[in-house]
């Protein structure tokens, strides 16, 4: 397995978490209530911390002297490899928390598998991320159940979020040559093997939340190849402007 292929694989892992971490950070100071504001910021920090480690490792594997900051702040949208799901705007609280459930369940399954990676650094990062992801799943699942099984208003918003986001969930499990290379080489996991357990867990939470599981739909894709929604560019502009305006700044 080539270094370029390993780099691409690690970039996907890092970018998913960096982009979602940044999206969640947009809630900071705007949370529905103090306690949830802090909770969302905690999850954001967990994800950005995981991204830092993953992108650092990606930079080492690439071998071109790019560190995690170079990869985070000096790549444009077309070079990002995150799934489309994580770059969508935060929407209302229901959208944020349903998206978090969808990603966290996926991330937990992915990181549980990556604990057995042949790359010891990646296995170590995954072991740390598993503990964090377990909490993210617990927190978001509990909220989805609360909203779905709550008032008419919260139920309607939660169902709308599930319906709107569903078409972005398929991309998480679409394996291509990069994924298959990583799985065959012992570095990574083939994401298509995670689809079934993911669906079982999500269906169980939605059932308890009295929410409907959407029927099969066309699944959006493109993020893994750098074809993103219009939203990512705007998000990156905000995320990157300080680092790009003051390239050598330290603080």
């Amino acid at each position: 397995m080539s270094d370029a292929s390993s780099f691409s694989y690690l970039l996907r892992l890092g970018d998913d978490r960096l982009v979602l971490g940044h999206r969640l950070s947009e809630w900071c100071g705007h949370g529905p209530i103090l306690e949830e504001d802090i909770a969302l910021a905690n999850v954001a920090l967990d994800l950005i911390g995981e991204a830092t480690l993953l992108l650092k490792l990606a930079g080492q594997v690439e071998g071109n002297g790019r560190n995690e900051d170079a990869l985070a702040y000096f790549r444009d949208a077309i070079d990002y490899r995150n799934a489309l799901l994580v770059e969508l705007p935060i929407g209302d609280f229901a959208v944020t928390i349903v998206r978090q459930l969808f990603f966290s369940v996926f991330s937990l399954l992915e990181m549980e598998a990556l604990r057995r990676s042949a790359n010891a650094d990646l296995a170590g990062i995954a072991a740390k991320a598993v503990k964090e992801s377990r909490y993210h799943v617990r927190h978001s699942a509990q909220w989805v159940i609360t909203l779905g099984d709550g008032s008419d208003e919260s139920h309607a918003r939660a169902q709308r979020a599930v319906d709107d986001l569903w078409r972005y969930t398929g991309e998480l499990f679409m394996a291509d040559a990069v994924d298959r290379d990583a799985a065959a080489g012992g570095l990574g996991v083939d994401p298509s093997t995670l689809a079934e357990p993911w669906r079982a867990q999500i269906e169980e939470v939605l059932r308890r939340a009295t929410l409907n599981v959407p029927s099969a739909a066309y699944m959006q894709r493109g993020g893994r190849e750098g074809r993103h929604t219009e939203h990512l560019g705007h998000m990156l502009a905000e995320m990157q402007i300080v680092a790009r305006s003051h390239p050598e700044a330290t603080w």
């Binding site: 209530i33 103090l34 306690e35 949830e36 905690n42 927190h139 509990q142």
Partner: peptide
């Protein structure tokens, strides 16, 4: 103290606010 709609949520909020 924390606000929460259920005991389980109170536990999570307490974890995030006081025990992180």
């Amino acid at each position: 103290s924390v606000h929460a709609v259920s005991a389980e949520q109170a536990l999570e909020n307490a974890r995030d606010v006081y025990a992180r």
